[in-house]
Design a protein around this nucleic acid. Structure first.
Lengths: 212, 212
DNA sequence: GTCTATAATCAGATAGAC
DNA sequence: GTCTATCTGATTATAGAC
């Protein structure tokens, strides 16, 4: 069995792929263990429960991405007054680094994030803010400083609009790239999609608040 | 039984509320029939299956909203060259009309739409484009004319970014308004959220394409 | 049309041998 | 650590009496 990773990793690998494609509640442990070619009981042995497995899948990506992302933002601020476009763009490299960790890692991570935010009824939001709060606030602080004309409450909403744009786009990325291919003969990988969405996000976050 | 609507309506009413709050797969027929105070078997008698019930719930809203929405857009174009903000804003009234049809109808509809797009693996997208395609294209055409500097393929992406922003925001609207209340002492109803998101969307859709 | 009762399936989790 | 076998509970769906 030289060419076979350990059971725990096999489960994580199969689970993240299925979770990203189908969502969490639509993915049974039986399907996961069947794709991973491991025994059904091993999930509970290694992870305790399905819920813990989901957390482990997410944590494996977040542990890599979050420090790199906040680091990129901090580095960027060493220079002078980055634009919103530059701040968002600084996340591209940390995102693409995930492809080195695992094939299709960027897309998988973003899709997991999307599924997680939508399915977990606020639980993932809590998990991320409590476990990665300091990294997160580096990003939020940089954005706020770069758009000082937006009041904090408004910025709260806009950052969540942004999150929504990203996670929905990524959860639908497969379908959308297929349609774009068929209708416009455009081939887009995940990086191309990310680079398309950034100007959209930056424009929305910075648009002056209308008083009506 | 004067003060009791018929079984079919009771099921639809209970189902749409639960679907919007919890998602489709997290809502069992047992929960629906229990809240509706009807017999479990009546769902299959009246709708045939859970999947058909989901379609019926969505169709009840779409049948009202889509004609009104496309009508609003067409009306708006009678005047001269509406802005993107005006086009998006023209949807507010049709959306709020849903509150007259049913208490909290606007929020319910948008949350259902969000859940549907995310959970249905592209099936809802197909259902909407095939059943409401003409209404939809009125809207798309108006947006395209109002932002002629955006090439069609780019506009395809931006309209889906927009869809993502809206449906994610609406699927998370309850959680977000709670947080905004707690952290910023801001009270927002669904109309307030809609009015917040429109400038964000309009700015993103119209931002010049960057050539890099 | 509505009900009870139940079929048929699938889920997560676990006991216990190896 | 891994396996088989099974438990327990939930689900959708249906048959058949009323």
């Amino acid at each position: 069995m030289a060419n076979r990773s350990d059971t725990k990793t096999r489960i994580l690998d199969a689970a993240e792929k299925l979770f990203a494609e189908r969502g969490f509640s639509e993915t049974s442990l039986r399907l996961i263990t069947s794709k991973a070619e491991v025994n059904l009981a091993s999930v509970n042995y290694h992870f305790g429960s399905k819920k813990e497995l989901i957390r482990a899948v997410l944590a494996r990506y977040l542990d890599r991405f979050m420090p790199e992302a906040s680091n990129a933002v901090v580095q960027l601020k060493q220079g002078s007054e980055p634009s919103l476009n530059e701040i968002f763009s600084s996340l591209v490299k940390p995102l693409l680094e995930l492809n080195k960790f695992k094939a299709d890692g960027t897309r998988t991570f973003l899709q997991l994030l999307g599924r997680g935010y939508i399915e977990s009824q606020g639980h993932l939001r809590w998990f991320i803010t409590t476990h990665y709060g300091e990294h997160l606030s580096e990003f939020v602080k940089a954005v706020a400083e770069s758009a000082p004309h937006i009041p904090p409450a408004e910025m709260f909403w806009r950052l969540h609009f942004t999150l929504g744009t990203v996670v929905f786009t990524m959860a639908s990325a497969d379908a959308l790239t297929e349609i774009a291919e068929a209708d416009f003969n455009e081939h887009n990988d995940i990086e191309a999609v990310i680079r398309k969405v950034i100007p959209y996000l930056a424009a929305g976050v910075a648009v002056p608040v209308t008083t009506q």
